[in-house]
């Protein structure tokens, strides 16, 4: 057998091995209940509770922003993001957080928001109404 094939086979074997370990880096979107029971770093997708308090006071701590979201099953929890309050936060439709539960709060180090793209229909509508 050719040496190249041997090398290739070894590489395929290594890649299968690596990719099975890669499964450890993956998780499903968790709920707050999952996060609390596992205690591990997880990703949570949810919706911002717009009626609840959002608190960011940089004078106290520029890396503390708290708000409430509802997870996939509708459970509402307080979230602490260790960062500034992002622009357009109130407009976000969906939020994906990475972090873990600490007591009653979900402490997140990373957040991704989905905001609606400027909804053109609505804009034209508003402009026409303003006449």
């Amino acid at each position: 057998m050719k040496k190249i094939y041997i090398v290739a086979i070894i590489m395929v074997a290594v890649s299968i091995g690596l990719l099975t370990t890669a499964a450890e880096d993956m998780s499903t979107y968790a709920t707050f209940a999952d996060a609390a029971s596992s205690g591990e770093r997880v990703k949570i997708a949810g919706q911002l509770s717009k009626d609840k308090e959002m608190y960011y006071n940089p004078e106290e701590d520029p890396n503390y922003f708290s708000f409430y979201i509802k997870d996939a099953v509708g459970e509402e929890q307080k979230v602490v993001l260790l960062s500034e309050k992002p622009q357009d936060f109130e407009l976000s439709e969906q939020i994906v957080l990475t972090g873990q539960m600490k007591g009653e709060e979900f402490v997140a180090t990373d957040m991704l928001m989905k905001c609606p793209s400027k909804y053109k229909d609505e804009e034209v509508y508003i402009k026409s109404e303003a006449q």
Partner: peptide
């Protein structure tokens, strides 16, 4: 890194490193 703000809430080096802003 906002070293002078030490709140009881935050533990662990990784989270401490995430605190990137200063006033």
């Amino acid at each position: 890194n906002n070293l002078f703000v030490m709140e009881g809430l935050i533990q662990g080096a990784t989270e401490e490193q995430m605190r990137k802003n200063v006033i």
